[in-house]
Nucleic acid binder design. Structure first.
Length: 549
RNA sequence: UGCCCGAUAGUAUAAUGGUAGUACGACAGAUUUUGGUUCUGUUUGUCUUGGUUCGAAUCCAGGUCGGGCAACCA
């Protein structure tokens, strides 16, 4: 029967909560800050949050955590929505933390009235100093002694715009000697005379993350609020606010964020790569952003599969890029249209093939897909093959073309190499071959068996296309853990632009198509293409069991 | 030298006191009109020292190592 798939620790918690009746159904949320594009680490979180809801019959909200107007922008809101949709998920509600600003403000007044919050006039430096260090407790300053009435008035004045940025903050009174730095009277409101992408100029004070996130979860009745490990020390604060305010007890659970080798996974670093033009933009196909991977040719299915395979746990991890490549190859192998493209051509003249004659041969679009149909390919006397596929002095077990050796041309004939025509400088100008007429693909009665099959294109019909070949963005496994500037570890050869000579059917390529260029890799049309110049991105190479040897 | 989190093959992730398993990678072979795919096989692991127990990856204690925490960021 079906072998039980083991649960991750969050699924265990949810099943327990459902079993005990703590919750009738679950509600999760994906809470990005709209200050950058989503990356594959977010994809893991999206798949987790939406996947859990799907699995247990619950729902997921998309909530923009937009409490810092100076870094946030609607451009990011739009890209985030597009990415989540593209990944294949539908949110129950589109919310914004800024939807709750009135409510959060009133929560703050409630805390003041309970004597749990006070307005502090100190500078940020003073506050930092007074906070102490992890090994030394902090001290509370004189502002903590203000009366409730005074605090209320001051806070209202802050809201009314009577003070400049940084002049005052609202803090909550907890414990200046807590071993948890986040509990040492954290700031919950600060003054920022800044235009907000949604609330405009309505506010000049904005809540801090800790005062917005948990309450937003609570307002929405989020049952399981899932975030990454670095928020563990925030959890006591998260619970403290909910407790003091007496609101719905959402619970926070933390898992380890995704790290991928040979790249970086922080919005700050990715933004730097974009701003300093090390890449062409957030959707540069070398970027680990969802938009970059999309442009590169990754499919939503492959990303979801990847998220599933990396698993959910609490230990730090650095996932191998090869796993992502495995996932995309596995999907693309099933759906990609096979086409033949020669990258580094050498001319082959089939001396016993009638001059001027062309015939149309048929080839399957995808041998993995019986319903994939066929296409026709012109064949004639002059064809192009890959230089790699010929060797004048081949080593043992070289199955390709060599003097006297025979190979199959995919979906065409078996040919034999008879003569090498060289230029005066010794380079090869062309290969003279003969074909075996009885060996035509599909009706071969030549009785000849060859080990090698080559891709090729009919020289007069070949269509030149631009192909962008990508390699890892960084030269080291974990750029963030290296000495110095992470950008000094960028791979200078992460993009190589080459010309391909493609079979004519490539003209019909559409942007949603996925191709396998036979024996090369998987490719997709880039958005920079025009009708007279097709540009392809290499998503990933085919696994190569030969050149490695 | 405060507090918190963590440690299982190269990389991830299971085993919830009872045979350490799976995937990716690597290696080898079979099949193949893609040196792809598919199939088969091989390889490699419980951080350490004690303790509890008939029995410990699992529970307890000490240690080691890794990560996090002192933004008016999220």
């Amino acid at each position: 029967m079906s072998e039980e798939k083991s649960l991750n620790f969050i699924e265990e918690i949810i099943e327990e909560d459902l079993r005990t009746g703590k919750h009738q159904s679950i509600l999760t949320r994906f809470p990005p800050e709209p200050n950058g594009y989503l990356h594959i680490g977010h994809a893991k979180s999206i798949c987790l949050n939406f996947g859990l809801a799907l699995k247990y019959g619950g729902k997921t909200n998309l909530r923009f955590d937009d409490t810092n107007p100076v870094t946030e922008d609607t451009e990011y809101v739009e890209s985030i929505k597009e990415d989540v949709k593209w990944l294949g998920f539908n949110w129950a509600n589109e919310f914004y933390a800024s939807d709750y600003f009135d409510q959060l403000y009133s929560f703050a007044e409630q805390l003041i009235e309970k004597g749990l919050a006070y307005v502090d006039d100190s500078t940020s430096e003073e506050i930092a100093t007074q906070k102490g260090t992890p090994t030394q407790s902090g001290v509370r300053n004189q502002y903590a002694n203000r009366t409730i009435a005074e605090n209320l008035q001051l806070f209202r004045d802050m809201r009314a715009g009577k003070y400049k940025d940084g002049e005052k903050v609202l803090r909550v009174k907890i414990d200046m000697s807590s071993p948890n730095m986040h509990m040492r009277d954290p700031i919950i409101y600060r003054i920022k005379h800044a235009h907000h992408h949604r609330t405009g100029d309505k506010w000049c004070i904005y809540p801090m993350y800790d005062f917005a996130h948990g309450q937003s979860d609570s307002i929405e009745n989020i049952t399981h609020s899932i975030c990454t490990l670095e928020f563990i020390p925030h959890r006591p604060l998260y619970e403290w606010f909910i407790e003091q305010l007496g609101i719905f007890p959402s619970k926070q659970y933390e898992f380890a964020r995704l790290n991928l080798n040979y790249t970086v996974m922080s919005k700050r670093k990715l933004l730097q790569l974009v701003n300093e033009h090390h890449v062409s933009g957030w959707d540069d196909p070398r970027m680990p952003t969802i938009s970059g991977l999309r442009r590169r040719g990754y499919t939503p299915e492959s990303l979801r599969d990847f998220a599933e395979r990396v698993g959910i746990a609490k230990r730090e991890n650095l996932i191998e890029f090869s796993l992502l490549e495995f996932c995309v190859r596995e999907h693309l192998n099933k759906i990609a249209l096979r086409r033949m493209v020669v990258f580094d051509p050498i001319k082959v003249i089939i001396t016993n093939y009638e001059e001027g004659k062309t015939e149309l041969l048929s080839s399957e679009n995808n041998p993995e897909d019986p319903n994939g149909g066929v296409r026709s390919i012109p064949f004639g006397r002059e064809i192009l093959i890959e230089q790699d596929d010929f060797m004048e002095n081949p080593p043992k077990k070289y199955f390709r073309l060599a003097p006297g050796q025979m190979v199959r041309l995919k979906s065409a004939y078996i040919i034999q190499c008879n003569e090498i025509i060289k230029n005066t400088d010794g380079s090869i100008q062309a290969l003279h071959c003969t074909y075996i007429p009885e060996s035509k693909s599909g009706q071969d009665n030549s009785g000849i068996h060859v080990k090698g099959t080559l891709h090729w294109v009919h020289a007069p019909a070949a269509l030149q296309v631009e192909v962008r070949e990508y390699d890892r963005l960084f030269q080291v496994e974990n750029p963030s853990s290296e000495e110095g500037d992470f950008k000094s570890y960028l791979n200078p050869n992460s993009l190589k632009v080459v010309t391909g000579y493609a079979e004519p059917s490539i003209k019909e390529a559409a942007s949603h198509d996925r191709f396998q260029f036979l024996r090369k890799g998987y490719y997709c049309l880039d958005k920079d293409s025009s009708s007279d110049k097709l540009i392809f991105n290499r998503t990933v190479t085919l696994k190569d069991g030969w050149t490695k040897k």
